[in-house]
């Protein structure tokens, strides 16, 4: 119910942006900025590139405001643009050149640990687990990676993931089936 109301609100806001309401664009930005950046960060594993591409996503949304029609969910459109940019970036090989080590990337960024005051041992364990997860995700083929990230972190349904990736629902299920099978084998020891 709340999710449906939120989706309608997104479309309503974007229609106001189409009419020239800048404040509605700010509202959409505030709502979706973090999910888009996080998605791109997990896809590319580089915070700076993720933010740059996320800006490109919102710039394109803004540029397309004049022709916006609420034919699909706003988040579908948003993540379609984001996925397209991420896949292009990966295909162009820039991901390899700009890939940062975990230490470099988190310089200046507060590290997130489950406990508020972790012990040194807990922090080290967390870092080790995180590195394993990052490696496992990074090794997935790009489309499988995108499908898993949308399924797990954005909690998208198969139909929406299919719309984002421009494929059938059964193709999405195949992608996820293979991706999770790979992740199960790579992360099985992390019990």
């Amino acid at each position: 119910m709340a999710a449906a109301a939120s989706l309608e609100r997104d479309a309503e806001l974007m229609l106001r942006v189409r009419s020239g309401d800048e404040a509605s664009f700010t509202a959409l930005l505030d709502r979706h900025r973090a999910p888009v950046v996080h998605f791109l960060y997990r896809m590319l594993q580089n915070q700076a590139v993720a933010e740059e591409l996320a800006q490109e996503v919102f710039l394109r949304v803004y540029r397309s405001r004049g022709t916006y029609e609420p034919t699909a969910k706003f988040t579908t459109w948003l993540f379609r643009i984001a996925t397209h940019l991420a896949l292009n970036w990966i295909r162009d090989g820039k991901n390899e050149k700009l890939h940062e080590s975990l230490d470099q990337e988190l310089e200046g960024v507060p590290r997130q640990v489950a406990d508020q005051n972790p012990t040194v041992e807990q922090a080290m364990l967390y870092e080790a687990r995180l590195a394993e997860v990052r490696r496992a995700i990074e090794m997935l083929p790009a489309k499988q990676r995108a499908a898993v990230l949308m399924h797990k972190y954005e909690e998208m349904e198969y139909s929406q993931i299919a719309s984002v990736l421009g494929c059938s629902e059964s193709a999405v299920k195949s992608l996820l089936f293979r991706a999770y099978e790979t992740l199960r084998s790579r992360l099985a020891h992390m019990v």
Binding site: T26, L29, R33, A34, V37, H38, Y41, R42, Q47, E51, A54, Q55, F58, L59, L106, V109, P110, Q112, A114, Y126, R129, L130, E132, V133, R134, A136, I137, K152, Y153, Y180, L183, R184, L187, A188, M190, V191
Partner: peptide
């Protein structure tokens, strides 16, 4: 095994978006 994967993926939180993001946009 799937729940192990789910819990492992839960470890990966997104870093905060930089404060100048909106201004740059």
């Amino acid at each position: 095994r799937q729940q192990t994967v789910w819990e492992a993926l839960d470890v990966w939180h997104g870093a905060p978006v930089s404060s100048g993001f909106s201004d740059k946009l």
